[in-house]
Every structure is written in C-alpha cells, then in structure tokens.
Simulated scan of single mutants.
Amino acid sequence: MYGTQSHEVEVNVPASKAWQLCRGAEIAILAGKHLSDVFDKVEIVEGNGGPGTVLKLTFKPGKAPGNITYFKEKFTVVDDEKRVKQTDVCEGGYLELGFNYFRVRLVVKEKSADCCVLNTTLEYDVKEECAANASLVSIQPFVKAMEFTVDYLLKHK
C-alpha cells in the first residue's frame, strides 16, 4: 500500500539561505534539541551532511507512533542545484512496523529574491499484511519541524 503526505510553508528569507540550513544535518540536530519533549537524542552516525550521511533519531518513551523507539535515516539525495534533499529510513522506525520504505523529501523553492517555499513530502509503502499501520503516518511531526526551521531562519537572517 503506497501513500504520500505533504506540507509546505512560505518563509521570507532567500532560498539560498534556507537551503544552506536545510541541506545537511545541522537542522535535524537543532530541531532535535528544540523538540526535546519528543526526541531523546539526534546524532550523526556517519557522514558529513552530504549523500550517504546517516542520522539516528531516538524518541522519548511513548512519543512516537507505534511504540517506535528510534530510526536511522540515510541521506540519499542532496542536490544543491535543485535544492532537494531526500532521506530514507534505513533501520528501525516504520521499517519495524511492516513498511517496505519510508522516505522524506524536502524541496526549497525560490519564490522571489527574499522569499522561498519549503515543501516536505512523505512517501511510504506498507506491506499488504501491515496495511493498517499506514494510519500511524502523520505529517504533523514534520510540520512542527518546519515551524521550528522557519522560526530559526527568521531569527538568524
């Protein structure tokens, strides 16, 4: 069973500035600290923020759907020209709940010289026998992360 969810938000900063923050691991580390009510720890397991980088996100007990305790995500695309970052869960998380894959794509689109749009899309595929677990997927945690990103960008213009 295939599914997608997406959300976008406009922010009054240049796309190049937003991309500089969002392209690597920095924003995940900052968001993990800011959202300390949800995350116990966000850490870089390997890499330097480019393709192949692996992050481990560990949740506080009871704060993730389906009793997920952690997941690792691998940066599979970091395209500076198109301003696209894609990560795939490579261990734990939704994979333990019967998902074939769980992917997050972030696109930073230039709207004008001083304004851009951040678009986050979730893509996932669930094994037929675990199809009910698709209801656990929610864009809301990513919306909270995007709100943090917008606030951070506006405070650090």
Rank of each mutant, 00 (worst) to 15 (best):
L21R: 01
V38M: 14
A31M: 11
E43A: 11
E81R: 07
F142S: 00
G93T: 04
K155L: 02
L154A: 08
V9D: 07
T76A: 00
E81K: 03
K17F: 09
L35E: 06
C116K: 06
V104M: 13
V42I: 09
N48P: 07
E128W: 13
K82S: 05
F59H: 05
A25C: 11
D88Y: 03
G66K: 01
R105D: 10
L122T: 01
K144A: 13
I27Y: 10
Y152F: 14
T149G: 06
V150T: 10
V13A: 11
K111A: 09
H34S: 15
G52A: 10
S112N: 13
T120D: 03
T76S: 05
A131N: 13
C116A: 04
Q86A: 11
H156D: 13
V13L: 12
N67Q: 09
V77T: 06
K144R: 14
T121V: 14
K127H: 00
K33Q: 15
I29M: 10
K109L: 13
F102A: 00
V45C: 02
D151G: 14
S16C: 13
E43D: 07
E81P: 07
M146S: 06
L106R: 08
C90Y: 06
K127S: 12
F71Y: 06
L136V: 12
D80L: 05
T53I: 08
K157I: 13
A18D: 11
K60Q: 14
V38D: 11
G32T: 02
V126E: 07
G32C: 04
V78D: 00
K109Y: 11
T53L: 04
S135M: 10
F148E: 04
F102R: 09
V117W: 11
E26D: 15
P61Y: 12
E123F: 12
A31K: 05
V11N: 03
V11T: 03
Q140G: 09
S138W: 03
E26M: 14
A145W: 02
N12P: 11
V104C: 08
D125M: 01
G50H: 12
H156I: 08
S36I: 13
A25P: 14
Y124K: 00
G32H: 05
K82E: 10
L57P: 01
L21A: 08
E96H: 03
L122I: 13
V54H: 05
I44Q: 00
A132S: 15
G52E: 08
K127A: 12
I27S: 03
K155H: 09
K111N: 08
L136D: 09
A131F: 10
K74F: 00
N12T: 12
G32K: 03
P141G: 07
K144L: 15
F142A: 09
E81Y: 08
I29T: 11
F99T: 06
H34E: 15
Q140E: 14
T76H: 00
A64W: 04
M1E: 09
V117Q: 00
P51I: 13
V11S: 01
Y124E: 00
Y124M: 08
E129I: 09
A25L: 12
L95Y: 05
S36Y: 14
T53G: 04
